[in-house]
Nucleic acid binder design. Structure first.
Lengths: 203, 203
DNA sequence: GTCTATAGCTGGATAGAC
DNA sequence: GTCTATCCAGCTATAGAC
Protein backbone atom coordinates (compact mmCIF):
# COMPACT_ATOMS: atom_id res chain seq x y z
CA UNK A 1 0.00 0.00 0.00
CA UNK A 2 2.70 2.46 0.98
CA UNK A 3 4.82 1.12 -1.85
CA UNK A 4 2.02 1.54 -4.34
CA UNK A 5 1.50 5.03 -3.05
CA UNK A 6 5.16 5.74 -3.46
CA UNK A 7 5.38 4.57 -7.04
CA UNK A 8 2.17 6.43 -7.75
CA UNK A 9 3.79 9.64 -6.54
CA UNK A 10 6.92 8.95 -8.53
CA UNK A 11 4.93 8.39 -11.69
CA UNK A 12 3.01 11.57 -11.07
CA UNK A 13 6.30 13.46 -10.88
CA UNK A 14 7.38 11.83 -14.12
CA UNK A 15 4.12 12.88 -15.76
CA UNK A 16 4.52 16.49 -14.63
CA UNK A 17 8.12 16.52 -15.88
CA UNK A 18 7.06 15.13 -19.24
CA UNK A 19 4.27 17.69 -19.45
CA UNK A 20 6.72 20.48 -18.73
CA UNK A 21 8.99 19.28 -21.50
CA UNK A 22 6.08 18.92 -23.91
CA UNK A 23 4.78 22.40 -23.07
CA UNK A 24 8.19 23.91 -23.69
CA UNK A 25 8.59 22.06 -26.96
CA UNK A 26 5.13 22.32 -28.49
CA UNK A 27 3.23 24.89 -26.46
CA UNK A 28 -0.11 24.42 -24.85
CA UNK A 29 -2.26 24.01 -27.93
CA UNK A 30 -0.11 21.40 -29.64
CA UNK A 31 0.68 19.43 -26.52
CA UNK A 32 -1.07 16.08 -26.83
CA UNK A 33 -1.97 13.46 -24.27
CA UNK A 34 -0.57 10.82 -26.64
CA UNK A 35 2.80 12.53 -26.51
CA UNK A 36 2.78 12.78 -22.72
CA UNK A 37 1.86 9.13 -22.30
CA UNK A 38 4.55 8.06 -24.72
CA UNK A 39 7.20 10.22 -23.03
CA UNK A 40 6.39 8.70 -19.65
CA UNK A 41 6.13 5.23 -21.15
CA UNK A 42 2.58 4.52 -20.04
CA UNK A 43 -0.68 4.20 -21.89
CA UNK A 44 -3.17 6.94 -22.30
CA UNK A 45 -5.82 5.42 -20.00
CA UNK A 46 -3.21 5.17 -17.26
CA UNK A 47 -2.45 8.82 -17.75
CA UNK A 48 -6.12 9.61 -17.34
CA UNK A 49 -6.10 7.73 -14.02
CA UNK A 50 -3.75 10.39 -12.71
CA UNK A 51 -5.30 13.45 -14.31
CA UNK A 52 -8.95 13.56 -15.25
CA UNK A 53 -8.37 15.80 -18.26
CA UNK A 54 -5.80 17.59 -20.32
CA UNK A 55 -6.75 20.80 -18.57
CA UNK A 56 -6.18 19.30 -15.14
CA UNK A 57 -2.78 18.09 -16.20
CA UNK A 58 -1.67 21.47 -17.51
CA UNK A 59 -3.01 23.27 -14.45
CA UNK A 60 -1.19 20.86 -12.14
CA UNK A 61 2.04 21.43 -14.04
CA UNK A 62 1.71 25.20 -13.81
CA UNK A 63 0.77 25.00 -10.15
CA UNK A 64 3.89 23.01 -9.36
CA UNK A 65 6.02 25.62 -11.10
CA UNK A 66 4.47 28.48 -9.17
CA UNK A 67 4.95 26.59 -5.95
CA UNK A 68 8.63 26.14 -6.83
CA UNK A 69 8.91 29.89 -7.30
CA UNK A 70 7.35 30.50 -3.90
CA UNK A 71 9.76 27.99 -2.38
CA UNK A 72 12.62 29.87 -4.02
CA UNK A 73 11.40 33.12 -2.48
CA UNK A 74 11.12 31.39 0.89
CA UNK A 75 14.73 30.30 0.66
CA UNK A 76 16.02 33.87 0.73
CA UNK A 77 17.26 35.28 4.06
CA UNK A 78 14.66 37.29 5.96
CA UNK A 79 16.79 40.41 5.88
CA UNK A 80 17.53 40.38 2.15
CA UNK A 81 16.44 43.72 0.64
CA UNK A 82 13.20 43.47 -1.31
CA UNK A 83 14.81 44.62 -4.55
CA UNK A 84 17.42 41.87 -4.28
CA UNK A 85 14.72 39.29 -3.71
CA UNK A 86 13.03 40.45 -6.91
CA UNK A 87 16.31 40.42 -8.79
CA UNK A 88 17.24 36.97 -7.57
CA UNK A 89 13.84 35.48 -8.30
CA UNK A 90 13.91 36.86 -11.83
CA UNK A 91 17.37 35.39 -12.28
CA UNK A 92 16.07 32.05 -11.00
CA UNK A 93 13.20 32.13 -13.50
CA UNK A 94 15.46 33.04 -16.40
CA UNK A 95 17.88 30.27 -15.44
CA UNK A 96 15.01 27.81 -15.68
CA UNK A 97 14.20 29.09 -19.16
CA UNK A 98 17.83 28.84 -20.22
CA UNK A 99 17.94 25.25 -19.02
CA UNK A 100 14.92 24.45 -21.18
CA UNK A 101 12.22 24.91 -18.57
CA UNK A 102 8.89 26.62 -18.68
CA UNK A 103 8.00 30.28 -18.14
CA UNK A 104 5.59 31.36 -15.39
CA UNK A 105 3.09 33.07 -17.55
CA UNK A 106 1.70 30.42 -19.86
CA UNK A 107 0.15 32.81 -22.34
CA UNK A 108 -1.69 35.97 -22.94
CA UNK A 109 -4.30 33.91 -24.74
CA UNK A 110 -7.57 34.27 -22.88
CA UNK A 111 -8.64 30.70 -23.62
CA UNK A 112 -5.67 29.38 -21.66
CA UNK A 113 -6.01 31.94 -18.91
CA UNK A 114 -9.68 31.12 -18.45
CA UNK A 115 -8.97 27.43 -18.41
CA UNK A 116 -6.36 27.84 -15.68
CA UNK A 117 -8.60 30.14 -13.67
CA UNK A 118 -11.16 27.35 -13.46
CA UNK A 119 -8.63 25.29 -11.51
CA UNK A 120 -8.81 26.01 -7.81
CA UNK A 121 -5.32 24.85 -6.85
CA UNK A 122 -3.81 26.99 -9.58
CA UNK A 123 -5.76 30.07 -8.58
CA UNK A 124 -4.72 29.67 -4.95
CA UNK A 125 -1.05 29.39 -5.83
CA UNK A 126 -1.13 32.35 -8.19
CA UNK A 127 -2.92 34.49 -5.61
CA UNK A 128 -0.29 33.55 -3.08
CA UNK A 129 2.44 34.49 -5.52
CA UNK A 130 0.76 37.79 -6.43
CA UNK A 131 0.47 38.65 -2.75
CA UNK A 132 4.15 37.99 -2.13
CA UNK A 133 5.33 39.94 -5.15
CA UNK A 134 2.99 42.88 -4.60
CA UNK A 135 4.33 43.28 -1.09
CA UNK A 136 7.90 43.26 -2.33
CA UNK A 137 7.14 45.78 -5.07
CA UNK A 138 5.45 48.13 -2.61
CA UNK A 139 8.43 47.88 -0.26
CA UNK A 140 10.77 48.74 -3.11
CA UNK A 141 8.72 51.74 -4.10
CA UNK A 142 8.85 52.96 -0.52
CA UNK A 143 12.60 52.53 -0.12
CA UNK A 144 13.19 54.09 -3.53
CA UNK A 145 14.65 51.05 -5.26
CA UNK A 146 11.71 50.92 -7.69
CA UNK A 147 10.04 53.87 -9.37
CA UNK A 148 7.27 55.06 -7.02
CA UNK A 149 5.52 56.88 -9.82
CA UNK A 150 4.59 53.66 -11.60
CA UNK A 151 1.35 51.89 -10.63
CA UNK A 152 2.03 48.68 -8.73
CA UNK A 153 0.27 46.60 -11.39
CA UNK A 154 2.44 48.06 -14.13
CA UNK A 155 5.54 46.90 -12.27
CA UNK A 156 4.02 43.56 -11.27
CA UNK A 157 2.86 42.57 -14.74
CA UNK A 158 6.05 43.84 -16.36
CA UNK A 159 7.97 41.71 -13.90
CA UNK A 160 5.92 38.61 -14.72
CA UNK A 161 6.33 39.34 -18.41
CA UNK A 162 10.11 39.29 -18.11
CA UNK A 163 9.97 35.70 -16.88
CA UNK A 164 8.43 34.67 -20.19
CA UNK A 165 10.18 37.22 -22.39
CA UNK A 166 10.81 35.79 -25.88
CA UNK A 167 14.03 37.79 -25.91
CA UNK A 168 15.58 34.92 -23.97
CA UNK A 169 14.77 32.44 -26.73
CA UNK A 170 15.95 34.72 -29.50
CA UNK A 171 19.21 35.53 -27.74
CA UNK A 172 19.76 31.82 -27.15
CA UNK A 173 19.12 31.05 -30.79
CA UNK A 174 20.87 33.88 -32.56
CA UNK A 175 23.17 35.98 -30.38
CA UNK A 176 25.86 33.48 -29.44
CA UNK A 177 25.90 34.92 -25.93
CA UNK A 178 26.46 32.45 -23.10
CA UNK A 179 23.83 31.72 -20.49
CA UNK A 180 25.34 33.94 -17.83
CA UNK A 181 25.49 36.93 -20.16
CA UNK A 182 21.93 36.45 -21.32
CA UNK A 183 20.79 36.20 -17.73
CA UNK A 184 22.67 39.36 -16.72
CA UNK A 185 21.50 41.38 -19.69
CA UNK A 186 17.90 40.34 -19.12
CA UNK A 187 18.05 41.47 -15.50
CA UNK A 188 19.74 44.74 -16.41
CA UNK A 189 17.23 45.55 -19.13
CA UNK A 190 14.27 44.54 -16.97
CA UNK A 191 15.20 46.88 -14.14
CA UNK A 192 17.21 49.64 -15.79
CA UNK A 193 15.68 49.62 -19.28
CA UNK A 194 17.48 50.34 -22.52
CA UNK A 195 18.71 53.88 -21.94
CA UNK A 196 22.05 54.67 -20.29
CA UNK A 197 22.40 54.87 -16.51
CA UNK A 198 22.84 58.17 -14.63
CA UNK A 199 20.71 60.15 -16.95
CA UNK A 200 18.02 62.71 -16.52
CA UNK A 201 15.67 61.57 -19.14
CA UNK A 202 12.61 63.09 -20.78
CA UNK A 203 10.56 59.83 -20.91
CA UNK B 1 -11.24 41.88 -66.01
CA UNK B 2 -10.06 44.94 -64.14
CA UNK B 3 -13.25 44.78 -62.10
CA UNK B 4 -12.69 41.16 -61.26
CA UNK B 5 -9.16 41.98 -60.29
CA UNK B 6 -10.41 44.76 -58.09
CA UNK B 7 -12.93 42.65 -56.21
CA UNK B 8 -10.30 39.95 -55.90
CA UNK B 9 -7.99 42.41 -54.17
CA UNK B 10 -10.78 43.62 -51.94
CA UNK B 11 -11.64 40.11 -50.92
CA UNK B 12 -8.01 39.38 -50.23
CA UNK B 13 -7.92 42.39 -47.90
CA UNK B 14 -11.03 41.09 -46.16
CA UNK B 15 -9.42 37.69 -45.73
CA UNK B 16 -6.29 39.20 -44.21
CA UNK B 17 -8.38 41.30 -41.86
CA UNK B 18 -10.38 38.27 -40.79
CA UNK B 19 -7.19 36.30 -40.26
CA UNK B 20 -5.77 39.06 -38.09
CA UNK B 21 -8.91 39.04 -35.95
CA UNK B 22 -8.85 35.24 -35.69
CA UNK B 23 -5.17 35.22 -34.75
CA UNK B 24 -5.77 37.75 -32.01
CA UNK B 25 -8.74 35.84 -30.68
CA UNK B 26 -7.61 32.24 -30.90
CA UNK B 27 -3.89 32.30 -31.55
CA UNK B 28 -2.10 30.56 -34.36
CA UNK B 29 -2.70 26.98 -33.35
CA UNK B 30 -6.43 27.28 -32.84
CA UNK B 31 -7.07 29.50 -35.82
CA UNK B 32 -9.07 27.46 -38.34
CA UNK B 33 -9.71 27.91 -42.02
CA UNK B 34 -13.41 27.25 -41.37
CA UNK B 35 -13.50 30.22 -39.06
CA UNK B 36 -11.76 32.51 -41.53
CA UNK B 37 -14.05 31.50 -44.38
CA UNK B 38 -17.10 32.04 -42.24
CA UNK B 39 -15.89 35.45 -41.03
CA UNK B 40 -15.34 36.59 -44.59
CA UNK B 41 -18.58 35.02 -45.73
CA UNK B 42 -17.09 32.74 -48.36
CA UNK B 43 -16.64 29.00 -48.61
CA UNK B 44 -13.49 27.19 -47.72
CA UNK B 45 -12.58 26.20 -51.29
CA UNK B 46 -12.81 29.86 -52.28
CA UNK B 47 -10.47 30.72 -49.48
CA UNK B 48 -8.02 28.15 -50.79
CA UNK B 49 -8.17 29.86 -54.19
CA UNK B 50 -6.57 32.89 -52.57
CA UNK B 51 -4.11 31.15 -50.29
CA UNK B 52 -2.75 27.72 -51.03
CA UNK B 53 -2.48 26.72 -47.40
CA UNK B 54 -3.09 27.81 -43.86
CA UNK B 55 0.62 28.53 -43.55
CA UNK B 56 0.59 30.81 -46.58
CA UNK B 57 -2.34 32.70 -45.17
CA UNK B 58 -0.71 33.27 -41.80
CA UNK B 59 2.57 34.30 -43.40
CA UNK B 60 0.80 36.75 -45.69
CA UNK B 61 -0.99 38.27 -42.72
CA UNK B 62 2.24 38.70 -40.78
CA UNK B 63 4.00 40.08 -43.83
CA UNK B 64 1.35 42.73 -44.28
CA UNK B 65 1.72 43.77 -40.65
CA UNK B 66 5.48 44.11 -40.94
CA UNK B 67 5.06 46.13 -44.11
CA UNK B 68 2.68 48.44 -42.28
CA UNK B 69 5.34 48.95 -39.60
CA UNK B 70 7.92 49.82 -42.24
CA UNK B 71 5.45 52.26 -43.81
CA UNK B 72 4.96 53.83 -40.39
CA UNK B 73 8.72 54.26 -40.05
CA UNK B 74 8.87 55.77 -43.52
CA UNK B 75 6.27 58.33 -42.56
CA UNK B 76 8.53 59.93 -39.97
CA UNK B 77 10.46 63.09 -40.96
CA UNK B 78 14.00 62.42 -42.13
CA UNK B 79 15.46 64.55 -39.39
CA UNK B 80 13.56 62.94 -36.51
CA UNK B 81 16.09 61.70 -33.92
CA UNK B 82 16.57 57.93 -34.01
CA UNK B 83 15.42 57.49 -30.42
CA UNK B 84 12.17 59.31 -31.18
CA UNK B 85 11.59 57.10 -34.21
CA UNK B 86 11.96 54.04 -31.97
CA UNK B 87 9.68 55.52 -29.33
CA UNK B 88 7.02 56.46 -31.85
CA UNK B 89 7.10 53.10 -33.60
CA UNK B 90 6.72 51.28 -30.29
CA UNK B 91 3.79 53.54 -29.44
CA UNK B 92 2.27 52.77 -32.82
CA UNK B 93 2.62 49.03 -32.20
CA UNK B 94 1.13 49.23 -28.72
CA UNK B 95 -1.77 51.29 -30.04
CA UNK B 96 -2.49 48.51 -32.50
CA UNK B 97 -2.53 46.01 -29.66
CA UNK B 98 -4.82 48.22 -27.59
CA UNK B 99 -7.24 48.46 -30.50
CA UNK B 100 -7.34 44.67 -30.69
CA UNK B 101 -4.69 44.15 -33.33
CA UNK B 102 -1.86 41.68 -33.61
CA UNK B 103 1.65 41.87 -32.17
CA UNK B 104 4.71 41.71 -34.42
CA UNK B 105 6.34 38.72 -32.93
CA UNK B 106 3.92 35.87 -33.42
CA UNK B 107 5.48 33.52 -30.95
CA UNK B 108 8.61 32.18 -29.44
CA UNK B 109 7.40 28.74 -30.47
CA UNK B 110 9.92 27.28 -32.89
CA UNK B 111 7.26 25.47 -34.92
CA UNK B 112 5.68 28.80 -35.85
CA UNK B 113 8.99 30.53 -36.38
CA UNK B 114 10.18 27.77 -38.69
CA UNK B 115 6.94 27.83 -40.62
CA UNK B 116 7.22 31.57 -41.20
CA UNK B 117 10.87 31.33 -42.15
CA UNK B 118 9.91 28.99 -45.00
CA UNK B 119 7.92 31.86 -46.53
CA UNK B 120 10.09 34.01 -48.75
CA UNK B 121 7.99 37.18 -48.67
CA UNK B 122 7.89 37.07 -44.91
CA UNK B 123 11.63 36.57 -44.58
CA UNK B 124 12.33 39.47 -46.90
CA UNK B 125 10.08 41.82 -44.97
CA UNK B 126 11.47 40.81 -41.61
CA UNK B 127 15.04 41.25 -42.87
CA UNK B 128 14.14 44.70 -44.12
CA UNK B 129 12.65 45.55 -40.74
CA UNK B 130 15.65 44.18 -38.84
CA UNK B 131 17.95 46.25 -41.02
CA UNK B 132 16.03 49.44 -40.36
CA UNK B 133 15.78 48.89 -36.62
CA UNK B 134 19.40 47.81 -36.21
CA UNK B 135 20.55 51.00 -37.87
CA UNK B 136 18.38 53.10 -35.57
CA UNK B 137 19.63 51.25 -32.49
CA UNK B 138 23.25 51.73 -33.49
CA UNK B 139 22.66 55.44 -34.08
CA UNK B 140 21.09 55.75 -30.63
CA UNK B 141 24.02 54.00 -29.01
CA UNK B 142 26.38 56.40 -30.73
CA UNK B 143 24.49 59.55 -29.74
CA UNK B 144 24.06 58.25 -26.19
CA UNK B 145 20.29 57.92 -26.21
CA UNK B 146 20.53 54.14 -25.78
CA UNK B 147 22.95 52.27 -23.52
CA UNK B 148 26.11 51.64 -25.59
CA UNK B 149 27.21 48.86 -23.26
CA UNK B 150 24.36 46.58 -24.31
CA UNK B 151 24.83 44.32 -27.35
CA UNK B 152 22.75 45.49 -30.30
CA UNK B 153 20.82 42.21 -30.36
CA UNK B 154 19.86 42.53 -26.72
CA UNK B 155 18.30 45.90 -27.45
CA UNK B 156 16.75 44.80 -30.73
CA UNK B 157 15.08 41.66 -29.36
CA UNK B 158 13.97 43.44 -26.20
CA UNK B 159 12.41 46.08 -28.38
CA UNK B 160 10.56 43.50 -30.48
CA UNK B 161 9.45 41.76 -27.31
CA UNK B 162 7.80 44.91 -26.01
CA UNK B 163 5.55 45.00 -29.04
CA UNK B 164 4.08 41.66 -27.98
CA UNK B 165 4.41 42.14 -24.23
CA UNK B 166 1.57 40.34 -22.38
CA UNK B 167 1.68 43.19 -19.88
CA UNK B 168 -0.52 45.13 -22.29
CA UNK B 169 -3.23 42.47 -22.16
CA UNK B 170 -3.09 42.13 -18.41
CA UNK B 171 -3.23 45.87 -17.83
CA UNK B 172 -6.17 46.09 -20.21
CA UNK B 173 -7.96 43.30 -18.39
CA UNK B 174 -7.23 44.08 -14.76
CA UNK B 175 -5.74 47.52 -14.11
CA UNK B 176 -8.56 49.80 -15.14
CA UNK B 177 -6.01 52.14 -16.72
CA UNK B 178 -7.08 53.87 -19.93
CA UNK B 179 -5.39 53.22 -23.25
CA UNK B 180 -3.23 56.34 -23.19
CA UNK B 181 -1.89 55.54 -19.72
CA UNK B 182 -1.12 51.96 -20.65
CA UNK B 183 0.66 53.14 -23.75
CA UNK B 184 2.71 55.71 -21.85
CA UNK B 185 3.64 53.32 -19.06
CA UNK B 186 4.69 50.66 -21.53
CA UNK B 187 6.98 53.09 -23.33
CA UNK B 188 8.43 54.39 -20.08
CA UNK B 189 9.12 50.91 -18.72
CA UNK B 190 10.54 49.71 -22.02
CA UNK B 191 13.12 52.46 -22.25
CA UNK B 192 13.70 53.50 -18.65
CA UNK B 193 12.98 50.24 -16.85
CA UNK B 194 11.41 49.85 -13.44
CA UNK B 195 13.88 51.72 -11.25
CA UNK B 196 13.66 55.46 -10.60
CA UNK B 197 15.18 57.96 -12.98
CA UNK B 198 18.31 59.97 -12.19
CA UNK B 199 19.93 57.21 -10.26
CA UNK B 200 23.35 55.72 -10.10
CA UNK B 201 22.45 52.12 -9.92
CA UNK B 202 24.48 49.05 -9.00
CA UNK B 203 23.39 46.19 -11.29
C1' DG C 1 -14.53 30.74 -59.47
C1' DT C 2 -17.93 29.41 -56.41
C1' DC C 3 -20.33 26.08 -53.88
C1' DT C 4 -21.69 21.19 -51.37
C1' DA C 5 -19.89 17.25 -49.86
C1' DT C 6 -16.43 14.46 -48.26
C1' DA C 7 -11.89 12.14 -47.82
C1' DG C 8 -8.30 11.53 -44.60
C1' DC C 9 -6.29 12.37 -40.40
C1' DT C 10 -5.45 13.54 -35.56
C1' DG C 11 -6.39 13.88 -30.83
C1' DG C 12 -9.30 13.77 -26.40
C1' DA C 13 -11.51 10.54 -23.91
C1' DT C 14 -13.32 5.75 -22.70
C1' DA C 15 -15.01 0.67 -22.86
C1' DG C 16 -13.83 -3.52 -21.53
C1' DA C 17 -10.43 -7.37 -21.13
C1' DC C 18 -6.89 -8.84 -17.87
C1' DG D 1 -4.71 -0.12 -12.36
C1' DT D 2 -2.91 -1.26 -16.63
C1' DC D 3 -3.41 -2.24 -21.31
C1' DT D 4 -5.57 -2.67 -26.48
C1' DA D 5 -8.87 -1.08 -29.25
C1' DT D 6 -12.03 2.24 -30.39
C1' DC D 7 -15.44 6.19 -30.52
C1' DC D 8 -16.28 10.69 -31.87
C1' DA D 9 -15.35 15.49 -32.86
C1' DG D 10 -13.07 18.73 -35.50
C1' DC D 11 -9.58 20.03 -38.64
C1' DT D 12 -7.01 20.63 -43.40
C1' DA D 13 -7.54 20.08 -47.90
C1' DT D 14 -9.85 18.65 -52.23
C1' DA D 15 -13.13 16.40 -55.67
C1' DG D 16 -16.65 17.42 -58.55
C1' DA D 17 -21.08 19.76 -59.73
C1' DC D 18 -22.59 24.26 -61.44
Amino acid sequence: MSFKNHTFKLREEAILNATTAALVEHGFELMTMDDIASRVGISKPSLYKHFASREDLVAATMTRLIQQAIDELDSYPQNMPAIDQLRNLLGWAIDIRLKGGMPFLPSTRSSIRDMLLRNQAYVLSIMNMNQRLSTLVTQCQQDGSLNPELPVLVILYSYYARTCDPTVDYLLAYSGLDHASIRDHMITVSFAGLIPLNRSQPT
